[in-house]
Design a protein around this nucleic acid. Structure first.
Lengths: 188, 188
DNA sequence: CGAAAATTTGACATGACTCAACTGGAGTGG
DNA sequence: CCACTCCAGTTGAGTCATGTCAAATTTTCG
C-alpha cells in the first residue's frame, strides 16, 4: 500500500526497490466492525498498520470497565508492545470499531525484515520515540488537565476519530465515565 | 562506565572494542543536588544516563504546580524526547534530586554514533519500546487504579527512589496532592 | 540553635462517579 | 412498514474520592 510506504518515508528514505521488498513482509487483511483482533491472554505476535477504518485497544478492569488505551485510524500503527516484545500473554484487547483494513506484520516477519533492512531499525526507533512523546503528553494531561479540557483537546486533535467512534469510547480514552462526559458537553 | 555498557548489553551485544568506542561519545558530569540540567524553554539537545544519584523531570502547570513525569536514578535514561527530536524548546525541567553523576550524549554525538554504529539504532529502538510499555501501564493506572494503590505500587516498584526523594515528589508522580497522599498513608 | 522545608491534620469544597430512569435512534423480524 | 428491542446518550439525586486552604507539627540542615 502507498499509505504505508509514505508513512515509513516520513522518517527514513527508501528506494522503490526497497519499498517493494518491505511491503512483502506485510499481509493485508480486512475485517468488519466489532471484530476482535487480539484478546487478553493471547500472545500478540504482530503489529498492525491501519490503512482504512479504525481499531481500538483497551484493557478491562476488575469491574469489567473498558479503558481505551489507543485508537488507530487510517495511517496509524497499533500493537500490544508488551506482549509483542516479551512473548507474554497480552493484557489488552484490540477490536475493530468500524469496517477496517490493515496490514499485519508478525514478530517473525519483522525480525527477518530488520535483518535484511537494518534501515528499518531506524524507522521503528523514530516511530517509538514519537510515541513516547505522545504518551508523556497524555500522562501530563491526565494529571494536570481537568476532564472538560481533555475532551476539547481530544476533539481538536482527533477530529476523524470523533466521528468514527461512539462518545462513550472517547469518555473511556480521556478517563471519565460516559455520564460525566455527557454532563460536561451539556454545560458549555 | 561499566554501568552504561552493561545497560546497553542488556539489549544488544557489543565487543569490548565497540564498547570503548561507544563510551567515547558520552561525557561524564557530576552535579550536586537541586541543580537544573534543563529548563523549560531551553532546547534539550541531549540524553542523559544516570550513573549514580537521582534526577527528576517535571512540568509546571499554570498554577505553578509541579507534575513529575519521570525519575531517573542509577542505571536509568532520561531526556525530553520532544525537544531532543524536534529541536523545539522544551516543555519540561530536569533537575537533580541529590548529588548525581551522569553521562551525557548530545544529539550531535548521537547522530555520529548511530552513523558509525548502526547497531545502536537497535538498542535505542528496543529501549524506546520498553519505555512505551511502561508509559502505557502508567496511563492505565492513572485511569483505573485508585490513588492508594498507585502509591503502594510505586513503593514496591521503586524502593530506591522512595528513599531518595521527598514524599511530595512521589505524590506528584502518582498524580495526587501531597496532603492527600499524607492522608492515604495515615489510614493504613 | 533557628529558619526553612516537609509532612500531617482538620474543616470544607468540588470534580467525578454510581445508579436508576428516561429519550431517541438504528437495526431487526414479522 | 410497523412494533420491538437494543444501544448510545442524557438527566438527576446522592455519594465518594480527591482537592483546597490554613494551621500545627516534625524534620532537615546551615
Amino acid at each position: 500500500m502507498e499509505l504505508l510506504i509514505n508513512n515509513i518515508r516520513r522518517y527514513i528514505s527508501l528506494s522503490d526497490e526497497e519499498a517493494k521488498e518491505i511491503m512483502s513482509f506485510f499481509e493485508l487483511n480486512k475485517v468488519s466492525k466489532k471484530i476482535m483482533l487480539l484478546e487478553k491472554g493471547d500472545e500478540s505476535d504482530f503489529t498492525l498498520f491501519v490503512s482504512s477504518g479504525c481499531l481500538k485497544m483497551y484493557s478491562l478492569d476488575k469491574d469489567g470497565i473498558k479503558h481505551i488505551i489507543q485508537f488507530a485510524s487510517e495511517d496509524w500503527w497499533i500493537s500490544d508492545l508488551y506482549s509483542f516484545l516479551t512473548g507474554n500473554p497480552s493484557e489488552y484487547y484490540i477490536e475493530s470499531v468500524k469496517d477496517t483494513s490493515y496490514l499485519k506484520l508478525t514478530k517473525e516477519q519483522r525480525e527477518i525484515m530488520l535483518e535484511k533492512h537494518p534501515k528499518m531499525e531506524r524507522f521503528f526507533r523514530i516511530m517509538c520515540e514519537y510515541n513516547i512523546i505522545h504518551s508523556r503528553k497524555r500522562i501530563v494531561d491526565l494529571m494536570q488537565t481537568p476532564a472538560k479540557e481533555r475532551y476539547e483537546k481530544f476533539c481538536k486533535m482527533y477530529p476523524t476519530i470523533v466521528n468514527d467512534v461512539p462518545l462513550k469510547h472517547i469518555a473511556s480514552y480521556i478517563g471519565v465515565t460516559p455520564e460525566f462526559l455527557s454532563k460536561l458537553r451539556s454545560i458549555r
